[in-house]
Design a protein around this nucleic acid. Sequence first.
DNA 1: CAAGCATCGTGTAATTTGTACACAATTCCT
DNA 2: AGGAATTGTGTACAAATTACACGATGCTTG
Lengths: 242, 242
Amino acid sequence: MTAESFKKLKTAEAEKISHIDYFKIAISVDCVIFGFEKKELRVLLIKSDLEEFAGKWSLLGDLVKVEEDLDSAPYRVLRQRTGLDDVFLQQVGSFGAINRHPSGRVITTAYYSLINIRNHKLEITDNEVHWHSLKNLKDLAFDHKQIIESCLERLRIQIMDEPVIFNLLPEKFSLRELQDLYQAILGIKLDRRNFRKKIALKNWLDDLDEMEDDVPHRPGKLYKLKTVLKKNKLIEVAEKTK
Amino acid sequence: MTAESFKKLKTAEAEKISHIDYFKIAISVDCVIFGFEKKELRVLLIKSDLEEFAGKWSLLGDLVKVEEDLDSAPYRVLRQRTGLDDVFLQQVGSFGAINRHPSGRVITTAYYSLINIRNHKLEITDNEVHWHSLKNLKDLAFDHKQIIESCLERLRIQIMDEPVIFNLLPEKFSLRELQDLYQAILGIKLDRRNFRKKIALKNWLDDLDEMEDDVPHRPGKLYKLKTVLKKNKLIEVAEKTK
DNA sequence: CAAGCATCGTGTAATTTGTACACAATTCCT
DNA sequence: AGGAATTGTGTACAAATTACACGATGCTTG
């Protein structure tokens, strides 16, 4: 920021009237919360209760508080709105077209989150909240469709190199489940043998010497993410964004 | 954003007093402007004239105006502060730690820009502005060191797949210049034969059938970026970020 | 309880991509 | 004329990617 604009800022703080000139923009965060169920990637949306967006779905978000770090805000939103804590969250980008919010100037920073739908039972407090398949998303409020696209794009890149995808799966999972998940995210079919070879090469998994027991066909082996990669990697990834 | 916080927002707009509660955070943009000279990657910095940061260097930035899109703000900053127009610019991330700005709450969105130092003669208006080598960066104001790191990281990824690096070079350049630039950005040496093979494979360049004429050794062929990739690609890339 | 179904687990050959590495030719400089 | 710096080019080896098929296992159903 320039010295000039900074001086204006200080002046603004002193005189409440001109203050308003320099703090006319509100800032929010929005969370694109991905989940995986029935072989489909899903996103958690809430019914918007803005008059302008009656009946439309929107992301979970809130204004950033003065006394909280930007990157902490989405954690608070998730905790307050879904009861979720300790989740994978990563900043994706900021969206600030003049007219993106119908009732004022609001710039939002988007975060994406990966959670395991079954493990984390949502404590939904207020409005209608639902998991939506990514396929037929329409009638979203604000620019939330675009925000979701950006997050999906980021997710696709990230799963290729970093062990983040496991946040979407239960502790124990089979290679088929993992492959189904990759396929759902990437939107393409993968060759089973080559997929397994590639995953083996990455050395992310520990073989649990256990078998699936709830499938209507020959059960596969169960695996889990190597413990070393678990929290460490999440923290690393989170810090990159800061 | 939730309906609840939104209602607060509307109330705030009506009553100027509580207004202040919801617009206490200012938003700025900061530009990490990369250039290339003497085989080194450089970044354009300005002497900070905040008392708190006396003598330190900082990025070019400014508060976002109420009547401008977030993504337009960095273009304005560049135009106003350096006279540069029509440059490559891409959003990288937002930084919003509570105490990152010593005199108030300011969240900033960082953009990186690539310009050709020789072509674009800077029209420097006010403070001291200088190109700094990325090697001995220290004593930066705010969290600008960290912001530069993030932008560099993004740049490194982006040059591998997308033809953005050419924004740092003159219209006509030799493969040696291109390789020197890749090396400066990546911080590693590359094998010349393999490098040329890889570039050839990407099919980004047109051979100009011209030779260098200002070098103290055997001159190399000159190339330019294929015209198709030039503006198109920039626009594509820019739009991805939005 | 047999037949059918869905999935598991596994390997090889062909192709593409990445890496390491050397030498003669050109131009400038002195 | 000799030295310095750089150009331009190819090959052999290793690693990664892709395409592709079959017998074994456990569950479901009739």
